[in-house]
């Protein structure tokens, strides 16, 4: 053991912790975040991923809308953290402040079709009232064999039509995926904006479905990070190691 160095290191660690707690605390307070979000994060997003996110294009009307929403005055997220599913088969980066995280099976009509990552500042509210931002990311081989990305969006749009004003569909592509996304406005009582994306790799091996609630410019940046970082990196059908 290197006890001689510990005494030197401890105060430095204390200082480091203080800085992280103080900085993240102030940022989260600005976003109305919970005390639960004061955990130091792995700042793992590479510069190339961040650059890709910064280039992601959204329709101008969506940009204008979130820019004009009152929440946009609340600043930006403190950073992005890496999430993986239960089997490390899928990964995505989400804002540090989305600390309510769930992973598990993607169930459709009670049957497992793939894996899921969900994250929000409050998932229950994200899923029930759309009044807080958050993301659902599901990956499935089963659905990829049955649906194209746009066909999956059609299904999803039908499910969500009652509560949303559909505004259009956009195409996006990067080095790994070909995808499309719907964007809708005035969703739910809170009149939020929702982006639903579906993407496949060129070989069509799997499909990824993403749903994001966007309340602010910061959330739109978060959506860009999600759409630039999601990836299936392992065997979706695998169990534990």
């Amino acid at each position: 053991m290197r006890k001689s160095n510990i005494l030197t290191f401890l105060p430095l660690l204390a200082l480091g912790l203080f800085v992280v707690v103080a900085l993240s605390g102030s940022r989260m307070a600005a976003l109305g975040a919970r005390p639960a979000e004061k955990v130091p994060q792995l700042a793992q997003e590479s510069p190339s991923l961040a650059a890709a996110a910064s280039k992601f294009q959204f329709p101008q009307e969506l940009v204008d809308r979130v820019t004009n929403m009152s929440e946009s005055a609340q600043g930006s997220y403190s950073g992005y953290m890496r999430l993986t599913d239960d089997f490390e088969a899928m990964t995505v980066f989400v804002p540090n402040e989305w600390q309510d995280i769930q992973t598990g099976d993607w169930l459709v009509q009670g049957k497992k079709v793939g894996n899921v990552i969900e994250a929000s500042s409050d998932l229950n509210r994200f899923k029930t009232s759309h009044d807080v931002p958050g993301v659902f990311v599901g990956a499935s081989r089963v659905l990829a064999a049955q649906y194209s990305g746009p066909a999956l969006l059609d299904l999803r749009r039908g499910e969500a039509a009652a509560g949303c004003e559909y505004r259009g569909q956009m195409h996006f592509t990067d080095a790994f995926y070909l995808g499309d996304y719907d964007y809708s406005m005035n969703c739910g009582a809170e009149k939020q904006n929702v982006i639903v994306a579906a993407a496949k790799p060129p070989n069509g091996d799997h499909v990824i479905l993403i749903q994001i609630v966007v309340k602010s410019k910061a959330d739109l940046d978060a959506a860009a990070h999600v759409l630039s970082t999601f990836q299936v990196i392992g065997d979706l059908d695998a169990g534990d190691h």
Binding site: T8, L10, P11, L12, L13, A14, L15, L17, F18, V21, A22, G25, P35, K38, V39
Partner: peptide, 26 residues
């Protein structure tokens, strides 16, 4: 750089740690 830090900094940092760790741990 770190060796040049004065002991005062260390002391202050320790105090900060004591003040904030309960917040972190809850």
């Amino acid at each position: 750089r770190w060796r040049a830090r004065p002991m005062l900094l260390i002391t202050v940092a320790m105090l900060m740690l004591l003040a904030f760790l309960p917040l972190k741990n809850g």
